[in-house]
Simulated scan of single mutants.
Amino acid sequence: MRPDHSTPRGGVTVGTLSDLSPLEAGAVIYLRHWFSGSETREQMRRDFEVSFGPEMAEAAFEAFGSLCNFCAAHGRRPLVRHGMTCKCLGADENCFANLLASAAEGQDDDAHILASLIVPAHKAHELTQIASDCGVFLQQIMGAQPPQRATRPLTATLH
Rank of each mutant, 00 (worst) to 15 (best):
R2M: 12
D4V: 14
S6P: 06
T7I: 15
P8C: 05
R9N: 05
R9C: 03
G10M: 07
G11C: 05
V12G: 03
V12S: 12
V14Q: 01
L17R: 14
S18Q: 08
L20N: 15
L20D: 12
P22L: 07
A25H: 11
A25K: 15
V28T: 09
I29D: 02
L31S: 10
H33W: 12
F35C: 05
F35H: 15
S38C: 02
R41Q: 15
E42Y: 07
E42I: 06
Q43I: 14
R46F: 09
V50Q: 03
S51V: 06
P54I: 06
E55V: 08
M56A: 13
A57M: 04
F61V: 06
F61S: 06
L67Y: 00
C68R: 01
C68Y: 01
N69I: 02
N69F: 03
C71N: 01
C71G: 06
A72E: 12
A73K: 08
G75D: 08
G75H: 03
R76Y: 04
V80P: 03
V80E: 10
H82T: 14
M84L: 15
G90S: 10
A91C: 07
E93P: 06
E93I: 02
C95M: 10
A97P: 10
L99T: 09
L100N: 01
A101W: 03
Q107E: 14
A111Q: 04
H112W: 07
H112I: 00
I113K: 10
I113T: 11
L114V: 02
S116I: 01
S116C: 10
A121N: 05
H125G: 11
T128E: 05
D133T: 14
V136S: 09
M142T: 15
A144S: 14
Q148E: 15
A150N: 07
R152H: 08
P153F: 05
T157F: 12
H159N: 10
